[in-house]
């Protein structure tokens, strides 16, 4: 495992820290203050309430080891019933599968296999998922599944072919889907 060089230190290691548990006040404050006390820096994060459970995924840099992070977070959050995991990662082995960015919307009556079916098509066309959120809502006594994602399409892949394949799969799944280029403006 290689150490990484960041603006905060020459020999820092990088970790992925996950923590989740029943939502309550102060989860983010406690987890991040445990990391701050170890002089760790948050390089990236995503945090969200998932059906009443709060989930955190953090990329953390610090001159520490897995055990010290784990024990620090666990002791700081003892009464919050969080499930905590810490894993050291090699920053040099983090591929960036980028390309032209698109937003994909999928929605319709909920059923098992929507995410799997759509994502199989994306994988077959070398479309890399950068971000994905889902929502389940009720409408006319039906459960409606809504999934929005941002994807990057590998160079050489045809977005029109991808869209045709997605529409065909969506038809089979009984949902609607649409793909559009990310609209970014240089200012």
């Amino acid at each position: 495992m290689r150490a990484c060089s960041t603006r905060y230190g020459l020999f820092m290691s990088r970790f992925i820290v996950t923590a989740f548990g029943p939502d309550s006040y102060g989860i983010v404050a406690r987890v991040t203050s445990a990391l701050a006390e170890l002089n760790c820096n948050l390089a990236d994060s995503t945090m969200s309430n998932l059906s009443g459970h709060f989930a955190m995924m953090l990329v953390v840099d610090g001159e520490v080891d897995e055990k010290s992070i784990f024990h620090s977070v666990q002791s700081k959050c003892a009464e919050l019933n969080l499930v905590v995991d810490v894993k050291q990662i090699d920053p040099a082995a983090s591929p960036t599968l980028d390309g032209d960015r698109y937003v994909l919307s999928v929605y319709g009556t909920d059923r098992p296999g929507i995410v799997a079916g759509i994502c199989e098509v994306l994988a077959a066309h070398n479309a890399n998922i950068f971000d994905l959120t889902t929502r389940v809502t009720e409408s006319d006594l039906l459960q409606i599944y809504t999934m929005i994602m941002e994807i990057a399409l590998a160079e050489g892949e045809d977005p029109q072919l991808l869209e045709m394949a997605l529409r065909a799969k969506a038809e089979l799944l009984g949902v609607s889907c649409s793909l559009r280029a990310v609209d970014s403006e240089e200012l």
Binding site: T133, M149, D183
Partner: peptide, 16 residues
């Protein structure tokens, strides 16, 4: 045949 969900800005642009 389009809803606003087909035009939202991205994964974090949809809200309950």
């Amino acid at each position: 045949g389009k809803l606003f969900l087909d035009r939202v800005d991205g994964p974090h642009a949809v809200f309950k």
